[in-house]
Design a protein around this nucleic acid. Structure first.
Lengths: 338, 338
DNA sequence: TTGAAAGCGCTAACAG
DNA sequence: CTGTTAGCGCTTTCAA
C-alpha cells in the first residue's frame, strides 16, 4: 500500500495529471463537470499532494528555521507564539532550532536548514555569528535578525532592534521621583552585546538625572535566578547600601526578591527592585514586579512578517531595519524612600 | 545565480552524476583519484545535496513533527530539550507544532505535517484526538503518544504513560508522617484525563493511609498560577481548614504560596503545600517547593528514541508501551503539624 | 571501476 | 477546454 499520488487521482477521474493539478491549484479553468469528478476522486482516495514534490519544482518549501537559544528562557514563549501565529496564517511551517547557547550546535542547524531549503530563517539567538547569516544568504535564504546590533549586516538581513534606552530611562526616572539616589545595576554577562547595551542605557539614565554614574555599582550576573540571589549577597556587603536596584532581566530580579527573605529584608520598603523583560511570571509573584517591558508577541509577529516580505519580494526586496520601544511598567516592587 | 546541483559537481569533476552520488553517500567503491576530484569539486563549489530531492526518492525526510500544547508551559522545555538532543544526534529536524490548546489548530498542523511527509510525530499535547493518530498512521507516519491514556491506541502508536500513583503516594505518606490528617487537593480541569488520574491517585493515597477520602476536599483549578490563588481563597473559607494541600501541578502550588501572604499565612507552618511536576522554578523560589517529580528530560529522550525505533523498523516494528515513574521530592514547603 | 537512463510526484510550457 | 512532455535534483538499477 503505497502513497496515493496525483496519478492515482487522474486515473480514477479519467483525466490527465495536468488537469488534476490545475483543479487543485486553481491555476486554469476546468469544466465544472470534470472538476467535480476530480474533486470526488481526491476525496475518495484521501489524496494529499506531496509538498516534497511540489517544493522540488517550485523551489519553495513554505518552511522557515527558527533559531533560538533556549526554549526554557521565559523570554521566548510569547515571541514564538507571535511567530507561529503569522506563520500558520500563511501556511508556513517552523523548524525548531534550539542552539542551547552553543555555537557548534547553531552551525549544525544552519547546515541542516540550508540542506532542507527553508525559505527563510529567524535569528533569535545570541549564539550566532555573522558568518552564519552570510552562509545562509549565500544560499539565497532570507533572514531576519533580532536584537543583535553588534554587527553590520546592512544588506544581508532585515533587523529588529529593541530600544532599551527609553524604558530604562523611565524606570530610573520613576525611582528618582520616589526619592532614590543610590541605584545599583545587576547586569548580564558583559561579553554579551545586549548586556552592554542595557548597562550603558542604565548609566546614561543615571547621568541624565544627575546621579553619580561614574561610580555606579554594577554587579555582573548570569541572567538567571541564581544570579539575582548572588547579586543580593554582594549588595548586602555594601555600606552604604543602595536603596534600589535595576536588574538586566526579570529572572534575576525575582531571584533577588526571593533571596531577600534570608536577609530579613522587607520588600519593597527596604529595597526597591526593577526588572526588565516583563515575563509572564513577573505580574504574578508577590509583590508583583515593576519592570521594563517590551511587546514580545508583537516582536514575534513582526519578525515573521518581515521575513515573509523578504520571501515574497525575492531578491528585489530591500532589507528593513525596525526598532521597537520598551516601556516601564509600574507594579509593586518599588516604594518611596522614606 | 542558481542552486548548485550534483550536475555542476559532476561536470567540474569530469564524472557522471552517479559517481558523485556514490562518493557522497559512500555507497559503492570509487577510485581514490576520482574520489578526490569529486570531493575537490564539491568543496570548490560549496555544494550541498538537496534534501528535497533526496526525500523524493528515498521517501524519508529525516523530519518529525512535535505536537505540544503551549511552549510557555514550564513542563515542556526539558522535554523538548530531550527530544531535540536525540533528534539532533540522529540528524532529524523538528517541526514545531504548538496547538495552543486548540483542536482546530492541531488538526491543521496534522495536515501540514502529513503533506510535508514527516517520518514521525510526537503527540505531547492534550489537545488531540484519536482521529489525529489514525489520520497520521493511515499515511504511514509513525507516532508516539505521551501520557494520554484516555484511549486505546494499541497497535497504532508507541506510548509513554506517567505513573503518578507512586509519587503521589509518597507525597501523601510524607504529609501523614509529619502529622497531617486533613489534606486537600487542587485538581486540574476535571474534563482532562490527566487531571482525573491525579485526583484518583490522590484519593487512593488518602484511602491507603486511612484518611477520609470519601469526604476529601477537591477544588478544581486551571493548572495555572491564578488557579492556585483562587484555590487558596476557597481553602480559607473552610472551617476547619485543611492543614496541607496537594496541587495537581507546581504552577498552582506556587500561586497558592504567593497568595498566602495576603492572608498573613506563614508557610509552611500554617499550611503545608506539595506540588507536582518539579518545574525549574520550584527549587528556586522561597520556600523551595516540595513536589512530585518526573524525569522530564528523560521522557523527551525516550519518546524520540521510541519514535526512531518505529521509523527504522518500518511497518514490522511493534509498538512499545512504557511507563515512567514519579517520585516525591522533599523541600521546604511542608512542615510537621504541631 | 564507471555511466546511462529511469523514475520519485509534481508543475508548467507548449500543443491541440 | 484538456493532454503530452520535459524537467526539478537526486538515487539506483542495469549495463558496460
Amino acid at each position: 500500500m503505497n502513497r496515493i499520488t496525483i496519478k492515482d487521482v487522474a486515473n480514477l477521474a479519467g483525466v490527465s495529471k495536468t488537469t488534476v493539478s490545475h483543479v487543485l491549484n486553481q491555476t486554469r479553468f476546468v469544466q465544472e463537470e470534470t472538476r467535480q469528478r476530480v474533486l470526488k476522486a481526491v476525496e475518495e482516495l484521501g489524496y494529499r499532494p506531496s509538498s516534497i514534490a511540489r517544493s522540488l519544482v517550485s523551489k519553495r518549501t513554505k518552511t522557515i528555521g527558527l533559531l533560538i537559544s533556549d526554549v526554557g528562557n521565559p523570554f521566548y514563549p510569547d515571541v514564538i507564539l507571535g511567530v507561529e501565529e503569522v506563520a500558520l496564517a500563511n501556511d508556513y511551517s517552523i523548524f525548531l532550532c534550539n542552539t542551547n547557547y552553543d555555537l557548534q550546535r547553531a552551525l549544525k542547524y544552519i547546515h541542516t536548514i540550508i540542506d532542507k531549503s527553508v525559505d527563510g530563517v529567524l535569528f533569535m539567538s545570541s549564539s550566532m555569528t555573522l558568518e552564519m547569516v552570510e552562509e545562509v544568504t549565500k544560499h539565497q535564504i532570507h533572514a531576519v535578525v533580532l536584537d543583535w546590533g553588534a554587527m553590520n549586516l546592512e544588506e544581508m538581513a532585515s533587523t529588529i532592534t529593541i530600544n532599551f534606552e527609553v524604558g530604562i530611562q523611565q524606570a530610573i526616572q520613576h525611582l528618582v521621583e520616589i526619592g532614590h539616589r543610590y541605584i545599583a545595576h545587576v547586569s548580564g554577562p558583559l561579553n554579551l552585546w545586549t548586556a552592554q547595551v542595557r548597562r550603558d542605557a542604565f548609566l546614561r539614565a543615571l547621568q541624565k538625572f544627575g546621579l553619580d554614574w561614574e561610580n555606579a555599582v554594577v554587579i555582573e550576573g548570569d541572567l538567571r535566578i541564581e544570579g539575582g540571589r548572588k547579586a543580593l549577597d554582594e549588595l548586602m556587603k555594601l555600606d552604604p547600601r543602595p536603596t534600589a536596584v535595576f536588574t538586566a532581566n526579570d529572572l534575576m530580579a525575582l531571584g533577588l526578591i526571593w533571596s531577600a527573605r534570608n536577609y530579613q529584608l522587607n520588600l519593597p520598603a527596604d529595597l526597591s527592585v526593577v526588572g526588565l523583560d516583563d515575563i509572564d511570571l513577573s505580574s504574578k509573584v508577590t509583590p508583583p514586579l515593576s519592570t521594563v517591558a517590551m511587546p514580545r508577541n508583537e516582536i514575534g509577529k513582526m519578525a515573521m512578517k518581515m521575513l515573509l516580505e523578504l520571501i515574497e519580494a525575492g531578491d528585489s526586496g530591500s532589507k528593513q531595519k525596525v526598532m521597537v520601544d520598551t516601556a516601564f511598567v509600574l507594579r509593586q516592587s518599588t516604594a518611596p524612600l522614606l
